[in-house]
Computed example of a mutant assay.
Amino acid sequence: MLKEHKGSLLGVDIGGSHITASLIDMTEARVVSKSYSREKVKDNGVPEEILDVWINCIKRSIELGGINGSNVKMGIAMPGPFDYERGISLITGMNKLESLYKTDIRTYLSTKLAIPKENIIFRNDAEAFLHGEAHCGAVKRVSTALGITLGTGVGSAIHTAGTTLDANLGISPFKEGIVEDYLSTRWFVSRYRELTGKEIADAKPVFDLAASRDPLALGIVGDFITNLSEFLYNFSIRERPGAIVVGGNIAKAYPLYLDQVNANLVKLGIDVPVVPSALGEDAAMFGMAYYLNGNRPEENATLPSREITSLNIH
C-alpha cells in the first residue's frame, strides 16, 4: 500500500494507440479520478515519440494524485510479445510499437521517473483486463471466464479457480492467416480499402456507417461477426466457461454485433453469454492493482496449447 494514498496503487494500461494511468483505490475498488491521465500514442513512431508520451502521462497521474513518485508501486498492462519478467519489449511484426523492439522498458521508466526498478511490474494486457473484470467487473461472479480485447491487436485470457492467465491466441493460425488478421483494427482498414479504395484510420468509421444502415458497412460488420463467432467458438469449446467478456476499442461498438455473436454461438451449441466490459479502459488498471496487491497466479502456471479451426456459420 502507498503511504501517501492509503489503499491506492498506480495502474497503467498501454495499448498500440494509447496509454492510460491512474491511482486505484483498493479499499473501495475505484479509480482515483483526480489522478486519471490518458494520452494517444503514435503506434508506429520512433522510440522517443512513444516513450516521451508514456513518461508524460505517468508523471501527470502521479502529480495529480499528489503522491511521492519514489514510493510509487506501478503495474503496467502491456501487449505482447513482451518479456514481462525483465521488462523488455519483444514486439515485432505486429504493426504496433515495433520501434521499441528489445528496449529495456523497465530501466528506461525507472530512470526517467525516479521509481525503483523493483516497484515496476509488467503483465500481459489481456490478462490484466480479464483479471480486473473477474474481480470487480462484468464476470466477477463467474468461476471460469474467458476474456478478449479487440483493438490494434487481439488479446485473450482465461480466468479459472481464481487464477488469470494469458491465452496468447492472437497469433494463432486462423483461416488464411492468424487471428489478428481477421479481428483487429487492421482487418477493418484492409477490408474497407479493398471494397472502396479509400483509407480509414481505424474501425470507427465502419461502425458509424453501419449504425446509419449503410449497406457496405453492414456487410463488413457482418463478416466481422462471422469471424468473431468462429474465434469465440474455438476459444470456448474446451473450456466451457460461464461467460465471455469483450473489451478494447472495437468492443465500444458492441451494440452493433454482440447480440448476433451470441445467437451464432447458441446455434453452434455454446450457450454462454458474451458480454461487454463493465470497466472499459479501467479494467486493465484494476487488474494491475490487484496483481500488485498480491493476487497473482501460481508460479509457472500455464495453459495447454489450443488450435483454432474455421467453421461455416450461416
Rank of each mutant, 00 (worst) to 15 (best):
Ala167Asp: 03
Phe188Arg: 10
Val41Phe: 06
Arg191Cys: 06
Asn95Thr: 04
Thr160Arg: 08
Asp202Val: 02
Pro47Tyr: 15
Thr103Phe: 11
Val189Ala: 00
Ile91Lys: 07
Gly15Asp: 06
Asn227Gln: 05
Leu279Gly: 10
Ile62Asn: 13
Leu169His: 09
Pro205Gly: 02
His18Glu: 04
His5Ala: 13
Asp214Thr: 06
Asp223Thr: 10
Glu180Leu: 01
Thr111Pro: 00
Ser236Met: 09
Ile88Asn: 11
Ser110Asp: 05
Lys96Phe: 10
Pro81Lys: 06
Ile105Trp: 06
Asp13Pro: 08
Phe286Cys: 15
Asn234Lys: 04
Arg191Pro: 04
Glu281Gly: 12
Gly155Arg: 04
Glu176Phe: 02
Asn124Lys: 08
Asp52Leu: 00
Thr20Leu: 14
Ser236Cys: 06
Arg213Ser: 10
Tyr290Phe: 15
Asp208Phe: 01
Asp282Glu: 14
Gly16Arg: 10
Gly248Gln: 03
Lys40Pro: 00
Asp166Tyr: 00
Thr185Ala: 10
Gly222Trp: 05
Gly247Leu: 02
Gly247Asp: 01
Lys73Pro: 11
Tyr233Asp: 02
Glu230Leu: 01
Glu298Gly: 15
Arg238Ala: 13
Ser61Cys: 12
Thr20Gly: 09
Asp208Met: 04
Leu228Ala: 01
Glu230Thr: 14
Lys34Met: 06
Gly7Asp: 11
Lys40Trp: 07
Lys252Pro: 01
Ala128Ser: 15
Thr20Ile: 06
Leu311Ala: 01
Gly151Ser: 07
Ala145Ser: 15
Val32Phe: 08
Lys59Asp: 05
Ile178Lys: 09
Ala167Ser: 13
Gly162His: 04
Pro79Asn: 05
Ile55Arg: 12
Glu176Ile: 03
Phe286Gly: 12
Tyr291Ile: 06
Ile250Cys: 08
Ile120Gln: 13
Gly69Lys: 13
Gly15Thr: 12
Ala134Ile: 10
Ser37Cys: 12
Met94Pro: 01
Val53Asn: 01
Ala251Asn: 03
Gly147Asp: 00
Met74Lys: 08
Leu256Ala: 15
Arg191Phe: 01
Asp43Pro: 09
Leu130Ala: 13
Ile148Met: 07
His159Ile: 02
Ser229Gln: 03
Pro81Trp: 10
Ser229Cys: 07
Lys140Asn: 15
Ser190Val: 00
Ile58Gly: 02
Gly7Arg: 07
Arg191Trp: 05
Arg30Phe: 00
Tyr36Pro: 02
Phe174Trp: 07
Met74Val: 11
Cys57Val: 05
Asn227Leu: 11
Gly75Pro: 14
Ala283Asp: 12
Ser22Tyr: 06
Asp259Ala: 11
Met26Cys: 08
Val72Arg: 04
Val179Tyr: 01
Lys102Gly: 03
Leu90Cys: 12
Asn300Pro: 00
Pro116Tyr: 13
Asn119Met: 10
Asp43Ala: 10
Phe129Tyr: 15
Met288Trp: 08
Ser190Gln: 12
Pro47Met: 09
His18Gln: 10
Lys204Phe: 08
Glu49Phe: 00
His135Tyr: 13
Asn71Asp: 11
Ile76Trp: 08
Pro273Asn: 00
Ser305Pro: 09
Asp43Arg: 11
Phe129Trp: 15
Val154Leu: 01
Ile308Lys: 02
Ser143Arg: 15
Asn227Val: 04
Ile121Met: 11
Gly132Arg: 14
Arg238His: 12
